[in-house]
Design a protein around this nucleic acid. Structure first.
Lengths: 156, 156
DNA sequence: GAAATATGATTAACATGTTAAGCGTATCAG
DNA sequence: CTGATACGCTTAACATGTTAATCATATTTC
């Protein structure tokens, strides 16, 4: 079998971890996890956004997002209301306190990103991202969710 | 600030998830999580291995590994003993039951990997992995965080 | 060789990932 | 209008990620 340390999932995991290792300390100093930061950044780029759409943009599953929004709301970093026309839907927006936090964290975050880009090369970085995007697209058109050999799902 | 859905960490996360989406169902059918599978595969390639080294190879943090080993041992998929010369160290090895499980899962896993490779292109996939590895190396020499062991950390 | 320190592994505590179930609201069928 | 169904979000339950603390064993220092 394939030398597993060279498998694609492991390569992607290790590389992502190598990148995040540089960002986490700064976020941590400001009391934010990686996911909380993703949410705040996503919110900063829109007026308001529905919960489901936010989950898609910040690439979080519903349950994780629910928990994190609860926490961010408690900390007054975000604000929520329901859609009047459809009471099931929730609208989320960033608070001014949240915006201030972003402005505080952004400089060091940008500096880290710039350092990484310089070190690896802007050209190569762009090329790498293109290849990642292409791979993502390739996979989205693969059948099933990996049920190789499976014919039909036994009811459970 | 950077359109955050195009940030490098997000790209790596999305791509990895796109890949894993295809593997998880098959693993799940065999009662394994992704991390448990990583451990079993790592164990299958050696006679025995120390816990710390296993953590490095399977790319898991100590606490996660401890919990998973406890579970895998309960399920008789692995075996453990301590190093006589240094009672602090633990040695882990895969059991025959664990080997059988691997042989059961491997075919569908290999099939999925082959499908991904065909779809994206073997050449491009190798190139992508080279670029990921290069990025990883670039980052390991960046100051600030991550080069644990490079210099030495002031005592805290 | 006893006290201090370091090391390997586990446990603790909290946040997130993951799947399933639950709850309220909306829509649809009759 | 009402029962059935679908939808949006949350909660539940369990596994893992992450950092700090703990425990036992080794090593060092005096």
């Amino acid at each position: 079998m394939r030398e597993f340390s060279r498998s694609l999932p492991m390569s992607l995991l290790r590389t992502r971890e190598a990148v995040m290792r540089h960002f986490r300390p700064s976020l941590r100093d400001h009391g934010l996890t990686e996911q909380q930061w993703r949410i705040l950044r996503a919110l900063a780029s829109v007026e308001t956004i529905e919960v489901t759409e936010l989950a898609r943009v910040a690439f979080l599953l519903g349950p994780s997002l629910s928990r994190i929004l609860r926490d961010l709301e408690t900390r007054r970093l975000i604000e929520r209301r329901v859609v009047k026309a459809d009471q099931r839907r929730g609208l989320v927006s960033i608070s001014s306190k949240g915006l201030k936090l972003i402005e505080t964290v952004a400089p060091s975050s940008e500096a880290i990103y710039a350092a990484i880009t310089r070190r690896y090369g802007a050209r190569k970085l762009a090329e790498l991202q293109n290849m990642l995007e292409a791979l993502e697209r390739s996979l989205s058109s693969l059948p099933g969710a990996g049920n190789a050999g499976a014919i039909d799902e036994p009811s459970e």
